[in-house]
């Protein structure tokens, strides 16, 4: 029961304030998306909010983009989407696989070390992305290796590390040493105890980390802009070359489509990892 945090009834000014601020937060998050979504159903080709009539014609355009061969870009939208997905899955897998043990080590290790490490792993977030992008590009070009997909995947892993680690760490916070000790006293090896007892308890945090990794990698633009090549390019890059030329309703429809794809992915990951009805 969380009654004390947000009372379901009564609570007077407290409840009102919390609800008011929370709705303000929702408004700030959702308003532009809402406007864009409404506009994508506009019947006319000139913008102007709210639109005078509604239709699905722009979604027809989007469907055609995917079905017909597209020559307006180095990679077709289908290829870019698949590349984006593949990279996002790789990034999700690697970042989670490395962050779970680290979070465990930090939570059980010395406090001072933990503070330092947390800071170190927050650094990728602090760097101006443009700077990081050009640095990665110059390094990649000087390596004289054909990195393929990894050109983009490696920087993405770096970018999501802070998020995945934070989520894993906060999941570790609630797990007391006693639980593990109990498992060990029942005859499990320490590693076994971690795998069987701690990791399942971290599930919610791991899941949140996975989802962040997925969303960030799937939508990352700045660093990818420096790293992509004619042969390996992602959906945000494809999208960019469209939005620069015009913000017609078909671009908005495509944005709504991308949001839908993201939501679908989130739900999918949620189902896969958390089983039915957990966390989100």
């Amino acid at each position: 029961m969380r009654i004390a945090l947000l009372p379901t009834e009564a609570g007077g000014s407290y409840r009102l304030t919390i609800l008011l601020l929370a709705s303000l937060g929702v408004l700030v998050s959702a308003l532009p998306v809402l406007v864009v979504t409404i506009m994508s159903f506009s019947a006319s080709d000139t913008s102007g909010f709210p639109p005078e009539g509604y239709s699905l014609r722009w979604y027809g355009d989007v469907a055609r983009m995917f079905l017909e061969e597209d020559t307006s870009s180095a990679q077709s939208v289908v290829d870019s989407t698949l590349t984006s997905l593949l990279i996002a899955v790789i990034v999700m897998g690697i970042s989670t696989a490395v962050c779970v043990p680290l979070a465990y080590a930090l939570a059980r290790g010395q406090r001072r070390v933990r503070a330092g490490m947390e800071l170190l792993f927050t650094l990728p977030l602090v760097f101006p992305l443009v700077m990081l992008g050009i640095a990665f590009l110059l390094i990649a070009e000087s390596l004289a290796l054909d990195l393929g997909l990894w050109r983009i995947a490696i920087p993405h892993v770096v970018l999501v590390l802070p998020f995945v680690l934070r989520n894993c760490l906060s999941a570790m916070n609630g797990i007391s040493v006693e639980i593990e000790e109990a498992a060990i006293s029942l005859g499990a090896s320490p590693l076994r105890a971690i795998w069987d007892v701690v990791v399942p308890l971290m599930r919610a945090g791991i899941l949140a980390g996975l989802i962040f990794a997925l969303i960030i990698s799937f939508n990352e633009f700045t660093i990818t802009f420096f790293m992509y090549t004619i042969d390996v390019s992602t959906l945000p890059i494809w999208m960019y070359s469209r939005t620069v030329s015009s913000l017609d309703p078909s671009t908005l429809a495509l944005s709504v489509f991308i949001i839908a794809a993201d939501v679908l992915l989130i739900v999918l990951v949620d189902r896969l990892i958390a089983g039915k009805g957990n966390l989100f």
């Binding site: 937060g25 998050s29 959702a30 532009p32 960019y240 944005s255 949001i259």
Partner: peptide, 27 residues
């Protein structure tokens, strides 16, 4: 409701910034 709220809060990370800026201009 929890899922809906979660996704809503995540929206700003998903939508192309240029398109979001366009949304703000309209508003």
């Amino acid at each position: 409701a929890r899922r809906l709220l979660t996704v809503t809060i995540l929206l700003p990370m998903i939508l192309n910034l240029l398109v979001q800026a366009y949304g703000w201009i309209l508003l």
